[in-house]
Design a protein around this nucleic acid. Structure first.
Lengths: 200, 200, 200, 200
DNA sequence: TGGTAATCGAGACGGTACGTCCCGTCTTAAG
DNA sequence: CTTAAGACGGGACGTACCGTCTCGATTACCA
């Protein structure tokens, strides 16, 4: 029987070590920044052999993609507040909280940095970050179209990228908090542009 | 006058070495990326002592800010094409050329990366990149207002950042070429939003 | 009696694995030398778990003492050729064959090496190598005394060590083959010194 | 002119570091044995970067060959005591002192060990150890021949190796001190064999 | 004849040291 | 005083094995 021959040996990883590494990595990156966090130091802080890290993650970036994944709350989705402006504002508040309260911002900017010399990582980053964000934004836009607030979107992904670009630009220049003024302006611009002739 | 008293002995820097370093740095960063370009290697490639580099630039970032400055053409300004859409498109085309034809994109993303763990660099980056860009965008918007295309901008800097954020997002995810579709959508979004009710 | 009470459960060791380990060890040490032969590699080559090796041998040295023991022929004894010169020559020929045809030389030199930082191993090595050799040489000398070829030895062990020292010196400097000239000279020297006044 | 073009850049090594490394290596090898002395530890003990060691010595063996060379006194030569027995005894006493008072014995046995898997080192060892020893023994024998104590040697090198073999055998089995009994027997055996028919 | 305990292969684990790469500083000799 | 050259102390890299440990699966004795 095929199943009986199944040779796939499921490598068994220690949950204790696995968790300790992720925790230590998150703690250290918050304290010293992505670039200044050494694998060696993470291993020591986690009470783990270096090889244990290299066994399960091919490099620092892969490790931190997992750490990042753990920090983003599962329920980071499009809350339905009844209006598109409210939905977007809710999303921005959640992101602000994520970047201010957790090392997610440090990790994300570090990963973006590293992706500059690692095309494979750039792709992973798309999968892990850009794609999920587009899904959320798309659902917000679809809901708004259903409500009749906006016309159906021709290209919701571009809208999402514009949104993400604005947030990244802030984040990468060191401002983690997305304050009320920024949120208002961004939502406003997305809805009706920065340069329309008439007033609001 | 203060300047006249200035006792600063004009340190004699070798123009030959100075140029060789900048040239070697530009060549190497294009070939191997910012993070993988070692000072040591630049010195060797330029036929220059390491100390000579450290004498004139405090660190790698400072060196590459100067390299970046040399790559950006002096005449990268707001060309007056007669319409705001044309002006913005012209700017985007110039940026696309810059990132595709020169290592400016590699340098910029590398500097952004490094700024994540170096607040001083983040400030320098603002001065060297964000501020000039805001000036250009502001002049475009002012011209458009004069023409009556748009109402006077309440916050041209925010508009500039939104514009830059969109370009960075692309650049940092690995797409250096700003194609016609992207340019059209970005300009469109800036002018009238991604979610306006009526069609154009 | 103590032995009768001995509760030691005769541990069941797999003869298949035992043999595979010894065989793999012998093969690898011949190919890569003692110091470069890792336990890990032996286990893999033998298709055996590392633990199985550590279960039955406390360390690498113990394993190779057993391998060495298997390589030395049971009948490596003092052949009676009718003369002391013949007996010694026969012994030297057997040793030469052992070191040239089998990895015994690599193992012996490796064990000597390891014994330098392991006094317990040095003792084991005496038991496993020096003692048996002394017995053989002693029997050769006694036979020669009986024949009247030499006077009874005051210190046959010293003679044996001198003999072994000469062979080790060669072996350790990389010459495994004990050629005719070497054998003749060594026997000659043992019988009548290197510096006697008269000729042979 | 040829001399003017002479490009040979004589690399300059820091005498301070050089000496510190040799000293630390000698101290550590005496305390922990050759095999248990790590390059890393030597560097730390000498207050030196690891690279500095690797820059000047290709490997641990090369470093310890130099350390060994420093330990052997320059005046370790054939003292003329008036008789061959006296000369050899003097040499043995000097060797005993060397192996008992300094880590030379640990180093030598460690080097012999390492040479087992490094043919190049085996050659170096010949140059650094075997050859000088042969020169000394040869001069002792020549002097003895001149005195008429022995007949001119057909093969002084073999005599030297027999001598060295006996000393190594002892050294490698852990006995560093060459006591009076050993010395007497070895000299005796060299002069007239271990198995001569008549008494002395 | 079925239960159970030791042994098996596999390989993850915490560690130590390896030899290499660069960092940013210091030293030298030539101009 | 600057320069090219490159040695220096140092920190981290990613790899190789160490000897111990944990996991099912297999095996062979004993009830």
């Amino acid at each position: 029987m095929v199943a009986a021959l199944s040779p796939a040996p499921p490598r068994r990883r220690s949950p204790r070590s696995h968790a300790a590494v992720l925790k230590a990595a998150a703690r250290l990156v918050g304290r010293r920044g992505y670039a200044n966090t050494a694998i060696e130091e993470i291993a020591a802080a986690a009470g783990v052999g270096k090889q244990t890290i290299y066994r399960w993650w091919p490099n620092k970036a892969a490790l931190f993609i997992e750490v990042y994944g753990q920090l983003v709350p599962r329920d980071l989705v499009a809350e339905d507040t009844g209006s598109i402006a409210g939905d977007l504002d809710s999303l921005l508040r959640q992101l602000s909280r994520l970047y201010v309260d957790t090392p997610a911002g440090s990790i994300l900017s570090g990963l973006i940095a590293e992706a500059q010399t690692d095309p494979a990582l750039a792709l992973q980053l798309s999968d892990a970050y850009v794609a999920p964000r587009r899904i959320i934004v798309r659902s917000i836009l679809e809901r708004a179209a259903t409500r009749g607030e906006i016309r159906p979107q021709a290209d919701p992904d571009f809208a999402s990228d514009l949104f993400s670009g604005a947030v990244w630009f802030r984040l990468l220049l060191g401002k983690r908090h997305l304050d009320a003024k920024f949120r208002r302006r961004l939502i406003d611009a997305l809805l009706s542009g920065v340069a329309r002739r008439g007033g609001r």
